[in-house]
Design a protein around this nucleic acid. Sequence first.
DNA 1: AAAAACCTTACGGGAAACCGTAAGGTTTTT
DNA 2: AAAAACCTTACGGTTTCCCGTAAGGTTTTT
Lengths: 221, 221
Amino acid sequence: MFQKVLVSDDLECTNEGVLSVLKSLKIKHAEHVQYCDDACLKIKRAQLDLEPFDLFITDLSFVKDHREQKYTSGEALIIALKKEYPKLKIIVYSVDDRLQKVRFLMNGHQTNGYVCKGRQGLVELENAIQAVFNNETYVSPQLRQALSPKNDQEIDDYDILLIKLLSNGLSQEEISAHFKNENRSPSSLSSIEKRLNKLRIQFKANNAIHLVAIVKDLGLI
Amino acid sequence: MFQKVLVSDDLECTNEGVLSVLKSLKIKHAEHVQYCDDACLKIKRAQLDLEPFDLFITDLSFVKDHREQKYTSGEALIIALKKEYPKLKIIVYSVDDRLQKVRFLMNGHQTNGYVCKGRQGLVELENAIQAVFNNETYVSPQLRQALSPKNDQEIDDYDILLIKLLSNGLSQEEISAHFKNENRSPSSLSSIEKRLNKLRIQFKANNAIHLVAIVKDLGLI
DNA sequence: AAAAACCTTACGGGAAACCGTAAGGTTTTT
DNA sequence: AAAAACCTTACGGTTTCCCGTAAGGTTTTT
């Protein structure tokens, strides 16, 4: 089993829970932090001391407070760490159950596990640790569909950006101008209308307001 | 100090954290559940056995799963409990930091404490338990402003409902019809336009979409 | 290389939202 | 009780959104 594990979550109570799992797995050396930057420092330090961590378990969202941070989300830190230490195993432990997120981190950035906080969260986390130790990946059951290639959702970055600009109060004409400015295509008012129409149908929205509300609720923007 | 405490949170790891606080406060009898309905049953049972709980600590949001529930949120349960057992002390322990929620539960339903999960969450929870035991109320520092009467925001239930209907995809004309139907005043299209205009100015929104996005981000709807 | 399918753009008409003005009603002030 | 302040509603004009059609361009299929 893993020898040295680092846990990072801004909520102390969550850290407690995770540590109790590690204890039950008889992992001797476990540390925990409440800031991404602290996690990063500890991992780098351990690496330099030639006593690297085997496993890093982290939340994704960290509430901002007075302390200025380089990494403000677990996501950003994971991307950076996987670049520098590809061998470090990383498991995400988050309430965030957005399929987009899961796909992005697992497929796009070789994260080793993604466990959804929930009633069964700690049990799943235990399974995840075991699986990752066996060089497998683990994803919470309710999120497995996220990785099946069928479920492509057919909604891309352009769509997301479009809706985000809408939600920022830009009119469709302003969005058109904005896209022309950035040489992003399609940029015509007509195309934007078309795309929004497609999205309205897709999300069963009555109008643009409704669309933004739905997509916000889904956490896509 | 309290003798008998019940903790309710759908996340096991959070329950663990809260129980550790209770232990440090030398509270002997502490139980925990993961469903509102279970909490309700336990409280009623204890009452019948003449060994009632002194304190109930609960989360607000409970993820739905296969189990059919009568109470699907901590909020609903609190309202019901406070009606039946006004003397039962209740502390909310939630990530939800929406001022409206706090005001609603503390002023509207005599909840005894409201602690925001966060880095300092467990420390605050300890303070809250102490305060509530001394027959005081406790609210996390970052939420105190919610209760100061000044900060009335001048935005009332009508405004909230109006924006909520908008976000549900109703046109202003449909909202007008809806209000007329329910004999809610003002209901004319013109008045609705006026009210929305006021809200747009108040929230510095460019248009209705922007307004809904802002208000959703603030957690008011 | 031609055909088909698809994407981007333009345009026009109708609907809804936005904005100012004004009339009539209600509540508060004096 | 009159005056003032405020609220609700109506209406007209402008802008933006919504929706269909059509033309021209690009990519994929055959």
